[in-house]
């Protein structure tokens, strides 16, 4: 499907989604509460079949966090981007590790670097940071480490 056709179909499926303009791939935003059902639909819908999560990450916007999911279909070769805005003080979103297995590691990284709590994740532990890490999440914008980080 072309980007326009995708957008029409996705708008029909998810009427509450808000769309971003001028992006390379169709990009829409949903609420964290919807994510679990939206993800299931994207994966199982026969016309969409998004079976490959090629990037999952988080962006700290200082007022809130945004989860960014880059999805691709190995069958139809179309790509979309889904975003979800999270509360910065208590960030929570449903896991997708059961739908796309690659998310298990991506989410563990986001969990330690941004402090996002993935509800229902099978094994939410530190992956890169050393055991017993205390303090803030290193990738957040307000993280300061004057000893190890050199600011230019």
């Amino acid at each position: 499907m072309t980007n326009e056709e995708l957008k029409i179909q996705l708008t029909a499926l998810f009427p509450t989604a808000t769309w971003e303009e001028g992006t390379e791939w169709p990009t829409f935003q949903i609420t964290p509460a919807e994510w679990s059902t939206v993800a299931n639909e994207l994966r199982t819908n026969d016309a969409l079949k998004f079976d490959y999560l090629f990037c999952e990450t988080c962006v700290d916007w200082k007022t809130h966090l945004t989860m960014v999911y880059h999805l691709s279909s190995t069958n139809f070769r179309h790509n979309i981007v889904v975003k979800a805005k999270l509360d910065r003080t208590k960030p929570e979103i449903a896991t997708v590790a059961g739908i796309w297995r690659t998310a298990e590691f991506f989410e563990r990284e986001v969990y330690e670097m941004y402090g996002v709590n993935f509800l229902g994740h099978p094994d939410l532990r530190l992956l890169i940071l050393p055991d017993g890490w205390e303090g803030k999440n290193p990738m957040r914008k307000d993280f300061e480490d004057p000893i190890n980080m050199i600011k230019l």
Partner: peptide
């Protein structure tokens, strides 16, 4: 994959490297 989020400045606001080895 290289994912750059820009705010219009001279440095990236956020960069994510989707490295093949990780997955």
């Amino acid at each position: 994959g290289v994912y750059i989020v820009s705010e219009g400045g001279t440095t990236p606001y956020r960069i994510k490297f989707r490295s093949p080895g990780f997955s």
